[in-house]
Amino acid sequence: MVDYIVEYDYDAVHDDELTIRVGEIIRNVKKLQEEGWLEGELNGRRGMFPDNFVKEIKR
């Protein structure tokens, strides 16, 4: 799994989504079957977030 950095703020709409803020690092990200969404861990919580608000961290 890979990590992503947040490029744009996003406020969660549903309980299974993450609220993300610019500059945060989302860890252990995986792609979901639902197009346009990823799932990852942030601040001890796992949830979904839109893939166009983040950028993969290349290592």
Score class of each variant (00 low, 15 high):
Val2Phe: 14
Asp16Val: 11
Ile5His: 02
Pro50Arg: 15
Met48Pro: 04
Asp16Ile: 08
Glu35Trp: 05
Lys31Tyr: 09
Glu56Met: 10
Met48Tyr: 12
Met1Lys: 15
Gln33Met: 08
Ile25Ser: 04
Asp16Gly: 12
Val6Glu: 00
Ile25Phe: 03
Glu24Thr: 05
Glu17Ser: 04
Lys55Met: 08
Ala12Met: 01
Glu39Gly: 03
Glu56Phe: 03
Glu17Thr: 04
Gly23Leu: 00
Asn43Pro: 03
Lys30Phe: 10
Leu32Asn: 11
Leu32Met: 10
Glu17Gln: 15
Arg21Ile: 00
Asp9Lys: 05
Arg27Glu: 11
Tyr8Glu: 13
Glu34Val: 13
Tyr10Arg: 13
Phe49Trp: 01
Glu24Gln: 07
Glu35His: 12
Tyr4Ser: 04
Gly23Val: 01
Leu38Val: 04
Thr19Ile: 02
Val6Pro: 00
Glu41Ser: 13
Ile20Val: 08
Lys55Arg: 14
Ile5Asn: 03
Asn43Gly: 12
Gly44Arg: 10
Pro50Tyr: 05
Thr19Tyr: 01
Ile25His: 10
Lys55Ser: 12
Arg27Thr: 13
Asn43Gln: 07
Lys55Gly: 08
Arg59Asp: 06
Tyr10Asn: 03
Val54Ile: 03
Lys55Trp: 02
Glu34Arg: 14
Asn43Arg: 11
Arg27Cys: 13
Ile20Ser: 02
Tyr10Lys: 06
Gly40Ala: 00
Val54His: 04
Asn43Val: 02
Leu38Glu: 01
Ile57Gly: 10
Val2Trp: 10
Glu34Gln: 08
Phe49Glu: 01
Asn52Phe: 15
Leu18Pro: 02
Gly36Trp: 04
Ile20Arg: 02
Glu17Ile: 03
Arg21Asn: 01
Asp3Glu: 14
Leu42Tyr: 01
Glu17Asn: 05
Arg59Glu: 15
Ile57Met: 08
Val13Cys: 12
Trp37Cys: 03
Val22Leu: 05
Lys31Ser: 10
Lys30Trp: 09
Asn52Glu: 07
Arg27Gln: 10
Val22Trp: 02
Glu24Met: 05
His14Asp: 11
Val2Gly: 10
Trp37Arg: 07
Glu7Ile: 14
Asp15Ala: 13
Tyr10Val: 00
Ile26Gly: 00
Ile25Val: 11
Arg45Glu: 13
Thr19Glu: 01
Lys31Arg: 12
Phe53Tyr: 10
Val6Arg: 01
Pro50Phe: 03
Met1Phe: 10
Asp15Val: 12
Leu18Tyr: 01
Ala12Asp: 01
Ile5Pro: 00
Val6His: 01
Glu34Ser: 12
Glu34Lys: 15
Tyr4Trp: 09
Glu41Asn: 06
Val54Thr: 08
Tyr4Gly: 06
Asn28Cys: 08
Phe49Lys: 01
Trp37His: 04
Gly40Val: 01
Glu7Gln: 10
Val13Ile: 05
Tyr4Asn: 04
Asp9Trp: 01
Glu56Val: 12
Glu24Phe: 06
Arg46Trp: 05
Gly23Met: 00
Gly23Gln: 03
Tyr4Gln: 02
Asn43Cys: 05
Asp9His: 08
Val29Ile: 05
Lys31Glu: 12
Gly40Gln: 00
Arg21His: 09
Asp16Trp: 11
Thr19Cys: 05
Lys31Asn: 06
